[in-house]
Design a protein around this nucleic acid. Sequence first.
DNA 1: GTCGTGATAGCCT
DNA 2: GGCTATCACGACG
Length: 203
Amino acid sequence: MKLTHDFYIRPTLEVARNLLGKVLVRRLGRKTLSGIIVETEAYVGPEDLACHASKGRTPRTTVMFEQGGCAYVYMIYGFYFCLNVVTEPRDFPAAVLIRAVDPIENISTMRRLRKNPERDTSIASGPGKLCMAMAIDKKLNGADLTGKTLWIEDRGVAVDRIDATARIGVDYAGEYKDKPWRFYIHGNPHVSRAKIGHRTQDV
DNA sequence: GTCGTGATAGCCT
DNA sequence: GGCTATCACGACG
């Protein structure tokens, strides 16, 4: 079941939590790559100083102002891409960063795209790795997530426990840097090893 | 295991 | 010009 716009046009924190356990699917030629989403971060609108759109509408952030249900992909550190899904109604700029997935279909292709890491738990255990593993780059910025190249499905995966921590790498965000808006599936080995601020709450 | 570092490009003041 | 929602690697112990 492909998620529709109703799923995305909701409060961002809700979407970020509900995306855990959903399946990210990438159609690549004749192949379908997919993985269970195990880690997300919410970037919640103009007030959130960690949200790119807190600086207003710029060429890069334009897509965050779209209505929920499209992809926001940007390059970071000159090397890597990050995949976000845009949330909330039009003109409220917010998104959820997909930080890690547990690969399930065509794992060998994803491993190859990642230059053959030793452990399968490091194929897509981080936002940059995930984009490499699923061949996601700037060309997918603005892509419709109800379309045919990149989408998210509900396959009924049960998530029994969600942990929440501060988001990674947003020390500059003043009063927003400690908001517990990073979510991951408790104990899942595919969650990124990025410095885990200690767990602040279970959801 | 942890820590520090270097790589590199696009964005925005 | 300064910064960044990252990753891999090597040095240490």
